[in-house]
């Protein structure tokens, strides 16, 4: 009897944990956090030239489904913005950057200003509007152009 009760409790706890994780993941997905701008990424770090106004760096893996939708969204949004580059980094090949930048989730999107300083950080899949808002906060002139 007590064993049955324990098992029901375990299942109930697992259910609650799953729902909490799901709600937190959904809620935090796509929201941009300000970064102090103390960390800098260079063209050497990324193996690709930075945008003249801003650079959007996306950390992805092959096994991450939301990374694919995020790539489409960012390609579309940055394509309309002159001077804004979109660089995708394969997290599996750049574990050094993951540790240095404390990336915990894919996709993680960093928005760099014209000098490569990290000023915004977005975790999880994002919408076109969220991407545009995050870039506008860094390079308003690129969005207006």
């Amino acid at each position: 009897m007590s064993q049955e009760l324990t098992r029901f409790a375990v299942l109930g706890a697992a259910l609650v944990i799953a729902v909490v994780i799901g709600l937190v993941a959904r809620r935090t997905s796509g929201t941009a956090a300000r970064d102090a701008g103390e960390q800098v990424l260079t063209a050497d770090d990324l193996g690709s030239t930075l945008g003249s106004r801003a650079t959007v760096v996306q950390f992805s893996t092959v096994v991450c489904a939301p990374c694919r939708s995020t790539r489409r969204v960012l390609d579309e949004v940055t394509g309309r913005m002159p001077g804004v580059a979109h660089i995708e980094v394969n997290a599996e090949e750049r574990v050094d950057l993951l540790s240095r930048l404390r990336v915990r989730r894919t996709p993680t999107v960093l928005v760099l200003d014209s000098r490569g300083r990290i000023v915004r950080r977005i975790s999880g899949a994002l919408t076109g509007q969220q991407a545009q808002a995050a870039i506008a906060g860094v390079a308003p002139e690129a969005v207006a152009a």
Binding site: V63, R104, R105, T106, T108
Partner: peptide, 8 residues
Amino acid sequence: CELYPVIA
């Protein structure tokens, strides 16, 4: 899938 960076 999303926590790959933590695992790596």
